[in-house]
């Protein structure tokens, strides 16, 4: 199912949290929804689901969410790891959520098993860890096998094995032709998962493109070399008008260059390199750059 987000906009009292945001989420792919803390990811998801009032609209296969029935077979949302009553057992919680699509008890048990909560199914979730809460939230979202999964920071609080499991699960889910929208503030988390990215900062769209394109722009912004003659290399580069900074013993960091270019210079001057790598900027660094020179970046990107 294809999701079209059209001109979403939302003001809180003092914050313009979401600003004329448009993008699409394609079926059969995992779309990472990226942005630093407070950039408006959660607000956007709430607007998409009609939970918050704002302007703009969201269409699911060309229709509003309310025009789909049953809704839970269309969209499954997991917005927060704490959205449950602390005294309602995990099993009863899912039974309740299964009402609209007429989910059987067997399916509830199946999903509990899938997310690894079968041993605590009849326990009250008040004492659940953050990771267990995430699993319960995910269970609720996938209960009716919806065409669209919308997950808000589902990896928070999960241990590495669980993150691996979640990644495999979401990739598999998308591979069956469904749409998956997952938010995160960590690029590293999304790199291995998402096929497409939608990036926002301060409520504005920064990029909406494939992950590989985005990574190409985020990385390569700095080259790291390690060489016995690092100082000589640094001087050579300086003479060519390329600035570098010494970064510990025998290591140079050279911003705004490619490994091809630096490798060439070293080879031409007979400098033996022990390491030549491009440094992938952290999402946070990219954001800092993008929000300062956001205009240029957006022009460079093929915003959908």
């Amino acid at each position: 199912m294809r999701i079209e987000v059209l001109g979403l906009d939302k003001h809180f009292k003092n914050v313009h949290a979401v600003q004329d945001l448009s993008f699409t989420v394609e079926p059969g792919r995992v779309t990472g929804f990226l942005g630093p803390n407070g950039s408006g990811k959660s607000t956007t998801m709430r607007l998409m689901l009609g939970l918050d009032n704002g302007s703009g609209q969201t269409l699911f296969d060309g229709k509003k969410l309310t025009a789909h029935s049953p809704v839970t077979r269309t969209v499954g949302a997991h917005l927060d790891a704490k959205f449950f009553h602390p005294k309602r057992t995990a099993y009863s919680h899912l039974r309740m959520l299964g009402a609209e699509a007429g989910i059987s008890k067997a399916r509830v048990n199946e999903v509990l098993q899938l997310v690894g909560l079968e041993s605590v199914a009849k326990k009250r979730p008040g004492g659940f860890s953050l990771g267990m809460g995430q699993r319960l939230g995910l269970a609720g979202a996938i209960l009716a096998e919806p065409q669209v999964l919308m997950l808000d920071e589902p990896a928070n609080g999960l241990d590495p094995q669980s993150i691996q499991w979640l990644r495999d699960f979401l990739k598999f889910y998308a591979s069956t032709g469904k749409s998956v929208l997952v938010s995160s503030h960590l690029l590293s988390e999304m790199q291995l998962l998402a096929d497409d990215v939608v990036v926002i900062a301060r409520g504005k769209l920064i990029a909406a493109e494939s992950m590989s394109k985005f990574l190409a722009r985020a990385s390569g912004s700095a080259v790291v070399v390690r060489a016995a003659e690092a100082t000589r290399l640094g001087e050579l580069l300086h003479n060519m008008g390329i600035e570098s900074s010494a970064n510990g013993l025998n290591t140079l960091t050279i911003p705004n260059q490619t490994t091809d270019r630096i490798g060439e210079v070293a080879y031409a001057n007979g400098i033996k390199l022990s390491e030549l790598s491009s440094q992938t900027a952290s999402l946070e660094t990219v954001f800092l750059e993008l929000t300062d020179s956001g205009q240029e970046y957006r022009l460079g990107g093929e915003a959908k």
């Binding site: 939970l51 809704v71 969209v75 704490k82 959205f83 449950f84 602390p86 609720g140």
Partner: peptide, 18 residues
């Protein structure tokens, strides 16, 4: 009261947007 206190209202209204 329980819905607002525990954020459940957002699950409820995601399931029944009307």
């Amino acid at each position: 009261g329980h819905e607002y206190r525990y954020g459940l209202i957002r699950l409820t209204l995601s399931e029944f947007p009307a």
